[in-house]
Design a protein around this nucleic acid. Structure first.
Lengths: 114, 114
DNA sequence: TTCTATTAACGTATATTTACGATATACAAT
DNA sequence: ATTGTATATCGTAAATATACGTTAATAGAA
């Protein structure tokens, strides 16, 4: 057994889970923080900043790109990675909604039940 | 190879990644949403609401409990699961900080570099 | 005590992730 | 063309995650 059943869940839940998955490794969190401070960095700079080999970083970057957290733009022989801030904002908002930290009505409802 | 290197990253990054990991499966997202609306549910109710077997749900609940997203309180023969809303709020806030969606200064800096 | 209901724990099959060496590819300069 | 630099891709080993059948543990009911 172990046939994945993720397709049985609703698309929003799958989407949020997918975004969370992309953020579920400390290397990827670190990359995002790094890009946040520098507003764009080449792959080599990221490799130098983290304790992982180049192919591993490349793999992590691909995962971040897959869900749209970062964008990649070739510049000559190298590639510049940048945060997609609006996409991140959207996800953060969706997350807060789902987790109930951005919804006054929810707090009220919860209080009413208590 | 594949000796995990997570210990080489800073504790905050590890913590955020760990929280994200807990939210990285649609079943767990769905459970959180369910608890949000009902303010507490027994394991059996959750099992009935999701397309997964009881042991699998139990496993997912343990993961959510591990990072403090939910709490478990026995009530007779059953166990009531509840959201830990303040913990979730804290994490959401830390996330927004890290992702730069909650920081005016950051936006200003980014704009200045552009 | 014995039965039933509820949930956790164990064991295990399969799938996915992580990490990296080796290699390929793309571009620039010589 | 050749060389060097930067990054992706391939292949693969080890670690983890997912899913569930089976079994154990616990609490209350009969």
């Amino acid at each position: 057994m172990a046939r994945r059943k993720t397709s049985q869940f609703d698309p929003l839940a799958r989407d949020l889970a997918d975004f969370a998955k992309a953020m579920s490794h400390p290397a990827r969190i670190t990359i995002v923080k790094l890009l946040q401070d520098s507003d764009g960095a080449f792959c080599g700079q990221i490799v130098n900043a983290l304790p992982l080999a180049q192919p591993t970083i490349s793999q992590h970057l691909r995962e971040l790109e897959r869900v749209g957290i970062i964008t990649a733009t070739p510049q000559g022989p190298r590639i510049c990675y940048r945060l997609n801030r609006s996409r991140i904002r959207n996800f953060c908002h969706a997350f807060s909604e789902t987790l109930g930290t951005a919804n006054e009505k929810q707090q009220a409802r919860a209080k009413a039940r208590a």
